[in-house]
Simulated assay, not measured.
Amino acid sequence: MRADAKKNYSHLLAVAREVVTEHGPEASMRDIARRAEVGLATLLRHFPTREALFEALLRTSLDALTRRSGELETSTSPDEALLSWFREWVAFALGHKGAVAMMAAAHTNPDSALYAACAAVHSASARLLVRAQAEGTARTDMNGDDLFGLMAALGWLIDLPPFAPRADHLFQILASAILTKSA
């Protein structure tokens, strides 16, 4: 991609992130184009559908979350790394309404645009869990699939308005079920 095209793409994603944060996954493509000060055709050239735009936004966020797991693996104790990762996942879920349902569908669909990003999140979660298990601070009767499932369940639950205010409390309950010592 040419440098100017990459800059335009990044600008569109940044503006789209703001609009989607304000209005959720049903944000108007016209509003995004207007705020980005481009024509709708320009936006649609980069992102032909709302779903394509939302997938691009999710991929960038999931890639950043996955990079963060690498930092946690080397910078903190295994149990703290796992807890931090899980907290960041909750923050991601709270900030990306509708994302968890898309991820759950993409998780087992290699044709999905989100498949690779979901696989990376799954792998990062599993590595952090195994590290905590090896240290004796996480349950040994669960695996990466179990952890990913719990993360997805919590993400789905806090996507529902009645549960969003209880996200931290629900996180604490799950954390205490995963770790062998108090969260």
Rank of each mutant, 00 (worst) to 15 (best):
R2C: 07
R2G: 15
K7L: 10
N8F: 04
L13A: 10
R17Y: 05
R17G: 14
V19M: 09
V20F: 06
V20C: 08
T21Y: 04
E22R: 12
P25I: 01
E26Y: 02
S28D: 05
S28H: 08
I32A: 08
I32K: 06
A33N: 10
A33H: 07
R34W: 03
R35A: 06
A36N: 09
A36Q: 08
E37P: 00
V38Y: 05
V38W: 00
L40M: 06
L40N: 03
T42C: 08
F47D: 07
A52C: 07
L53V: 03
F54C: 08
A56N: 07
L57G: 07
L58C: 00
R59I: 04
T60G: 06
S61V: 03
L62F: 02
L65G: 11
R68C: 12
E71R: 13
L72D: 15
T76P: 10
T76H: 12
P78M: 09
D79Y: 04
E80D: 15
S84A: 15
W85I: 14
F86W: 09
F86Q: 09
R87G: 10
W89M: 07
A91H: 01
A93K: 00
A93L: 01
G95L: 02
H96M: 03
K97D: 11
G98I: 01
A101K: 08
M102T: 00
M103V: 02
M103F: 00
N109G: 05
N109P: 01
P110I: 10
P110M: 08
L114S: 11
A117N: 10
C118W: 04
A120Q: 14
A120C: 11
H122K: 15
A124D: 07
A124Q: 07
A126I: 01
A126Q: 08
R127H: 06
L128Y: 01
R131V: 00
T137F: 08
A138K: 04
R139I: 06
T140I: 02
D141S: 10
M142R: 04
G144Y: 00
D145P: 01
D146H: 11
F148W: 09
F148L: 13
G149V: 09
A152P: 04
A152T: 15
A152F: 09
A152N: 13
A153H: 14
L154P: 13
W156T: 13
P161V: 14
F163E: 15
P165I: 11
R166D: 12
H169N: 05
Q172Y: 03
A177R: 05
A177T: 05
A177C: 06
T180F: 01
K181H: 04
K181W: 02
S182A: 10
